[in-house]
Amino acid sequence: MASCSYKEKVVRLVKCFCGCSDMTVEEVHRIYTLTNSVHETLLDAEATKLLRTFMKLRRSGDKNEAEQHLEIYEKCAEFLKEAQRTFTQDEVDELCDLGLPYDSEQDLSKRMLGGQRSDISLGLYRIQGKCRNEIEASSDFRDFRDAIRDKMRLVPK
């Protein structure tokens, strides 16, 4: 029988906001670093998921504007990934159902009627930029960053 030697490795875990999963200290640090930029946070699936959970747990009742902007941002990202799919009024309506502002709806509808995928993509990126700015301006994102920082303070050095 061959002998195996295992190095013991201690993994320190920190509770997620929802309390349902544990994050490594390194993951908390990584996400905290991402929160220096809303853009970087939204490009990272785990950080975005954590932000969404954080906002959901804080609300009572309907979604606030920051949550709506996050959903619109993510839906635009989903549409941008589907480059081969024809963009129709159904997709515009789907964004409207999430709370897309009227001016953005009108702009995107015009682009959709033009039928140029590159123009539609530019419209989706523009909407994402507006959503990103709104999320950054919200107290939700600042509170999220502060909550991550507070989690890091609880970890023994």
Rank of each mutant, 00 (worst) to 15 (best):
M1V: 03
A2Y: 15
S3L: 15
C4S: 11
V11E: 10
L13F: 14
K15Y: 14
F17S: 09
C20P: 00
T24P: 08
T24H: 06
E26C: 01
E26V: 10
E26R: 04
H29D: 03
R30C: 01
Y32K: 05
S37F: 12
V38L: 05
E40R: 08
T41M: 04
E46Q: 10
K49S: 07
L51V: 01
R52D: 13
T53R: 07
F54Y: 12
F54V: 11
K56P: 00
R59P: 00
R59S: 02
S60F: 08
G61F: 02
E65W: 00
Q68K: 14
Q68H: 11
L70W: 11
E74N: 15
E74M: 13
K75M: 14
A77Q: 11
E78M: 11
E78R: 08
E78D: 12
F79Q: 01
L80M: 07
K81E: 11
E82P: 00
E82C: 08
E82M: 13
Q84S: 10
T88V: 11
D90Q: 09
E91G: 01
V92S: 04
D93L: 05
L100E: 04
P101D: 13
Y102H: 05
Y102K: 08
D103V: 11
S104I: 08
Q106M: 14
Q106Y: 15
Q106W: 13
D107T: 09
K110W: 12
R111K: 14
L113I: 03
L113W: 14
D119L: 11
D119N: 11
I120L: 06
S121A: 15
L122C: 12
L122G: 09
G123M: 05
L124N: 02
Y125T: 01
R126A: 05
G129N: 14
N133P: 00
E134P: 00
E134I: 07
E136D: 03
A137K: 05
S139K: 09
D140A: 03
D140L: 01
F141E: 11
F141R: 06
D143S: 08
F144R: 03
F144Q: 07
F144H: 06
R145M: 11
D146I: 09
D146L: 11
A147P: 06
R149V: 01
R149F: 06
R149T: 08
R149A: 11
D150S: 10
L154G: 15
L154K: 13
L154V: 03
P156T: 03
K157R: 10
K157F: 00
K157M: 12
